[in-house]
Simulated assay, not measured.
Amino acid sequence: MPADQITHKPKLRIGLIGTGFMGKAHVFGFTSAPKVFELPYDLELHTVADVTVETATRAARELGFAHWTTDWRDLISNPEIDLISITAPNALHKEMSLAAIAAGKHVYCEKPLAPLATDALEMTLAAELAGVKTQVGFNYLCNPMLRLARDMIAGGELGEIRGYRGLHAEDYMADPNGPWTFRHDPAGGGALADIGSHALATAEFLLGPITDVMGDCMTLIPSRPDGKGGTRRVEVDDVGRAFLRFANGAQGSVEGNWIATGRKMQHDFEVYGTRGALSFSQERFSELHFYSTEDAPGRRGFRRIEAAPDHAPYGRFCVAPGHQLGFNDLKAIEVEGYIRAIAGQTPEPFNFRAGLRIQTLVETIQRSSAAREWLKVPG
């Protein structure tokens, strides 16, 4: 068909706030998803906002935005922009999201949704009242191997689930001489909130609601350089752990650890059932390992299941099994689900209410740690 006869889809114009690691990941998702999936909209990178002229203009040039600004409010007030993508520091998520919602724009906010569950609730209620579509960035859940694991658990292949272990460990805060950053701000930081939230989201994605927690949150590096020749006290956890009880009767544990020397991306889980077990590591995230008690004696062991076109939507990216997906591919899958939700084709994959749930879990674990007792998870 000649190019001039192609039917054009409606445009969805995107404004991005923040151009760091996650800002670029959002852009990769927005630009890859239309090439991999048949989306109901043409996505347009309209305007990018960052704090200085230099960073904003460079981002516009390198990432492909038509316009740039140093004031994120310009995106909110621009009637041409339909969707606000927020990858700014955690403590700014609430103000930016509420402003975007009030302007009737859809909001894609990187996790954690807000520093406090009360803030996340306010954001959730505002979005639901306004009728805008929301998404919180938990793209690890988009991995076909996690979806396979959930299907195997739900289908009874592991039997009755007895135990769960989840871990998200990295070492980007392991150096005690590393500077104090926004992640150390009590108004939105700490290892449990920053990366332990992924472990909690995965636990509930696989096994369903967590009902009770016993937390243990520790600060092991008590102060850090403040960038001005002095030091600043660290009041958030470097390691956050919790024992868990699930509604389905299973028990388990999770850990968020950002001082795990040598670990760059260890987002792992193990699930133990009466008929089998699963083991997964983000360090080899195109693999899922399955143990079955139905194998003959002398033939038992964890077998490797490699990602393949049989595990949708892997086949959208590659027709050959075992060739693996990447981190940004998961962002493209996340974007695809969100864009379909905006079009009314599917429910929101992980909206603000789901983000509120994760923040509620984090805060309940923190309160449990302070009280040194088991606590019920609200709601």
Rank of each mutant, 00 (worst) to 15 (best):
L158D: 04
F350G: 00
P10Q: 08
W180I: 12
G137D: 10
F269A: 08
R357N: 07
A371M: 12
E95L: 07
T55Y: 13
A308M: 04
I17E: 06
M1W: 11
G23H: 03
G227Y: 13
Q366P: 02
T118L: 01
N248S: 06
T19K: 01
Y338Q: 03
G249P: 06
W374I: 05
T293G: 06
C318K: 15
G196H: 11
G104F: 10
H289R: 06
A247K: 15
I358R: 04
H311P: 02
G64V: 00
I14M: 10
G337K: 00
H198V: 14
G276N: 01
H93W: 14
K111N: 14
R372Y: 08
V36W: 10
M173N: 09
L244P: 02
S292H: 12
E122F: 05
R73I: 05
M152Q: 08
H323I: 09
G15Q: 09
W180Q: 14
G29F: 11
G240A: 02
L39Q: 10
R303F: 06
S279N: 04
E38M: 09
A25S: 14
C318Q: 09
D216C: 03
D82Y: 08
D74Y: 06
R372M: 12
T69G: 08
C142L: 00
W258I: 02
L325R: 04
Y172A: 13
S85R: 03
K376I: 11
V335G: 04
T202M: 15
P209W: 04
G315T: 00
V136C: 05
A120N: 08
D74L: 06
L206T: 05
V319I: 07
A260L: 00
E363I: 03
T346Y: 08
V51A: 14
T293F: 13
Q345K: 14
R183P: 01
S292M: 06
G131Y: 02
Q345L: 10
T31M: 09
A117T: 14
A320Y: 10
E44W: 11
Q366F: 04
G322T: 03
S368E: 01
L207P: 04
V132T: 11
P2V: 12
T134Y: 09
G315R: 00
L158R: 13
G273T: 10
G166P: 07
A308K: 05
Y314W: 07
G156R: 14
R61A: 15
G240E: 06
Y172F: 04
E44A: 10
A33Q: 00
M265L: 05
S279P: 00
L148V: 02
A49K: 09
R13V: 07
R73P: 00
A56T: 15
A99L: 07
T70N: 07
E334S: 12
H26L: 02
V271C: 07
M123N: 06
P321T: 09
T211Y: 12
G155T: 07
K331R: 09
F21C: 00
E294Q: 10
L129W: 00
K35R: 15
D42K: 01
I17H: 00
P347A: 08
A59C: 06
L288W: 10
D295P: 02
R13Y: 01
I305K: 03
A174S: 15
C217V: 04
P10L: 12
